[in-house]
Simulated assay, not measured.
Amino acid sequence: MSHHLEAFLEMMAAERGASPNTLLAYRADLVDALGFLGPDAARADAEDLRAWLATLGGFSARTQARRLSSLRQFYRFLAREGLRTDDPTELLDSPKAPASLPKAMSEEDVSRLLEGASRLPVNQAAIATAAIELLYASGLRVTELVTLPAGTLHAAEPLVTVRGKGAKERLVPISRRAREAAQAAQESLTPRGKGRATARKWLLPSRGANGHLTRQGVGLLLKQAALAGGLDPAKVSPHVLRHSFATHLLSRGADLRALQMLLGHADIATTQIYTRVLEERLRAVVEEHHPLARA
């Protein structure tokens, strides 16, 4: 089966553009499954696969679902290549992963994060502040943020075009504060040599290979700002700021459909999870403050 596995991984890389990390995850999942199924794995039926799934009982539903997804991709590949006539995974039900509530910061903690960013060394403070302001003011994904071109923000154009998942474009408003923070970050950078070209190309430039700040670089800046602001860095990330943007907008009366457009969600069901956050908060407020809640 090893040659089938290698052929599958080659296909995922060449046709699907799977990243090295994604390929490693597929390999790990499939090595485990195929090791259990044995040399006849290519001819395994649904009952064989259910027996393998039963060995995953100690894992979370999310992990089980991911491993089954890897197996589905593999057996679809075998069927497509004519190595078997059916796909046994079609008869399997995916484990139901409980929907987890997004973790959002309070408005006060966002202010503390910005204060922490301002206390960082001069060469970091401006770009950290710009990253926080832009993420929190717009709800951008971190990849969308770091790949914004330098000429994206114009004073006369409050809406900017962002290229999101699946190369889909959407219009996102950027606040005056965020625009000013981004301008201050660019002015604080004094690149030399090749750096001048990259500074003109990207909104948040860097001397790295990509020419722009990386996702990891933004994450590190947020951790440093959190520490400087007296916050737990483990609870701060670009995605947490995106969740905070959405949660705070809803709590102040934003329309769910408008929020879907701002976040770039293809399905409004993805956006609706934020209503659960508000429900949980309202319940906690009643339980903590209502005089009869604990009677």
Rank of each mutant, 00 (worst) to 15 (best):
E10W: 01
A13K: 03
A14C: 01
L23F: 04
L24K: 15
A25F: 10
A33L: 12
A33S: 13
L37A: 07
L37K: 09
G38T: 10
P39D: 12
D40H: 15
D40S: 14
A41H: 08
A42R: 12
R43W: 10
R50I: 14
W52A: 02
L56N: 09
G58C: 09
A61W: 08
A61N: 13
Q64C: 05
R67W: 02
L68C: 03
F74M: 01
F74D: 00
Y75P: 10
Y75R: 05
A79V: 08
A79E: 15
R80V: 00
R84I: 13
D87N: 15
T89R: 08
S94M: 00
S94Y: 04
K96T: 00
A97R: 13
K103C: 06
K103Y: 04
M105R: 02
S106N: 10
E108L: 07
D109T: 08
D109A: 09
R112L: 15
Q124D: 08
A125F: 06
A126H: 07
A128H: 03
A128K: 06
E133C: 05
L134E: 03
Y136F: 04
S138F: 05
G139A: 07
R141T: 11
T143A: 15
V146L: 00
T147W: 03
L148G: 07
A150H: 12
A150D: 04
T152N: 07
A155G: 14
P158R: 13
P158K: 12
V160W: 09
V162E: 05
R163F: 11
G164V: 06
K165H: 04
E169I: 07
V172R: 08
S175R: 07
S175W: 10
R177F: 11
R177S: 13
A182C: 07
Q183W: 10
Q186H: 11
S188D: 14
L189S: 13
T190Q: 14
R192I: 07
A197Y: 15
A197H: 13
T198H: 12
R200I: 05
K201G: 14
L204D: 00
P205F: 11
A209C: 02
N210F: 05
H212C: 12
G219C: 02
L221P: 03
L222F: 06
G230P: 01
L231D: 01
A234T: 08
K235A: 04
V240K: 02
R242Q: 05
R242C: 04
R242L: 06
A246E: 11
H248S: 10
G253M: 15
D255E: 03
L262N: 09
L263F: 14
H265P: 05
A269T: 15
A269H: 10
T275I: 05
R283Y: 07
R283K: 14
V285D: 13
E287N: 15
H289I: 09
H289K: 14
H290L: 13
L292N: 03
A293R: 05
A295E: 02
